[in-house]
């Protein structure tokens, strides 16, 4: 190709990416930097700023509510990552079997993932509603496990577990899709060889399926951590009293005594963690 053609192609390429990259630069890259800048200021909702140096960071590191929300986030992450991965794997193995109505079942289990958060949270709240909910009906009236009807979502400690269960319900389908795609490409003769070696179903799962899937499982785990670290809507709309880090940040920035500089400082710390995770993802996962 002549050099004029190469130049023209480069020009066209730059022209085509310019709008998208311009918007992303202005509204993602610049805000990330602006956020670091804001974290050194006392920032008001109307835009007034006074420089406070590292005060936002020292305040934050001396704030027990911050450590509490870090703790809640860690429990949330561990619960949801393990839950979605294990259930996703189980669903993938199950849906890889042949049975009648398999296509119907495969479609139905994707529903939670497709549904808008806002339209399912109220259903979940109703399930756990202390007066009308099926949960309290089963636990108190049918199984007689306790005598009193409890408001699981009203109490932040138990609400955390409802939120974890909700996240598993909502997001295991994506883990399932990733794992099923890989599972379908595992060569059949590996299973036949294992069967000839006398492995039962469990042995075949342990010695063939798991080793074949281990990279995809690692990918799923890493992606779940990355997405759930920033997850806001699913937690806040179901149980606003469960203070994971994003929700704590939201309260700092927009509710009660507004402290936007402090919120910026939390975001900066969280961004550093996130950048580390994304770097790991790009280096390890995208190379596979």
């Amino acid at each position: 190709m002549s050099s004029i053609l190469v130049k023209n192609e480069a020009k066209l390429g730059l022209k085509l990416v310019a709008p998208a990259v311009g918007i992303i630069g202005l509204l993602v890259i610049y805000p990330i930097l602006f956020n670091i800048y804001l974290s050194f200021f006392d920032v008001q909702l109307n835009g007034d700023k006074t420089f406070v140096g590292l005060d936002n960071y020292t305040d934050l590191l001396g704030n027990p509510r911050y450590y509490h929300s870090v703790g809640v986030s860690i429990v949330y992450l561990i619960g949801t990552v393990i839950g979605t991965t294990v259930l996703g794997l189980a669903a993938a193995v199950l849906m890889n079997q042949e049975f009648r109505f398999r296509n119907l079942a495969r479609g139905l289990i994707l529903l939670p993932y497709f549904a808008p958060v806002i339209s399912v949270v109220f259903g979940w709240q109703f399930i756990f509603d202390p007066v009308n909910g099926i949960y309290n009906h089963v636990v108190v009236d049918v199984l007689h496990l306790t005598d009193t009807r409890e408001n699981l979502i009203g109490n932040p400690d138990s609400a955390l577990f409802v939120v974890i269960l909700f996240d598993i319900w909502k997001h295991f389908p994506i883990a399932y899709l990733l794992l099923l795609a890989k599972l379908q490409s595992v060569p059949k003769d590996l299973y036949e060889a294992a069967a000839i070696d006398g492995q039962n179903a469990w042995g075949r799962f342990w010695h063939v399926t798991l080793p074949e899937l281990r990279f995809v499982i690692a990918t799923v785990v890493l992606l779940r951590i990355i997405w759930n670290l920033n997850r806001f809507e699913d937690v806040y709309l179901l149980a606003p009293n469960v203070e994971t880090l994003p929700i704590f940040t939201y309260y700092q920035a927009f509710a009660g005594i507004v402290d936007q500089g402090g919120a910026a400082a939390i975001s900066v710390i969280q961004l550093l963690v996130l950048v580390g995770l994304i770097w790991l993802y790009v280096r390890k996962v995208l190379k596979w």
Partner: peptide, 11 residues
């Protein structure tokens, strides 16, 4: 992968 929560204050 940079979620909305990290950008809400600066935006």
């Amino acid at each position: 992968m940079v979620g909305g929560v990290l950008l809400m204050v600066p935006l």
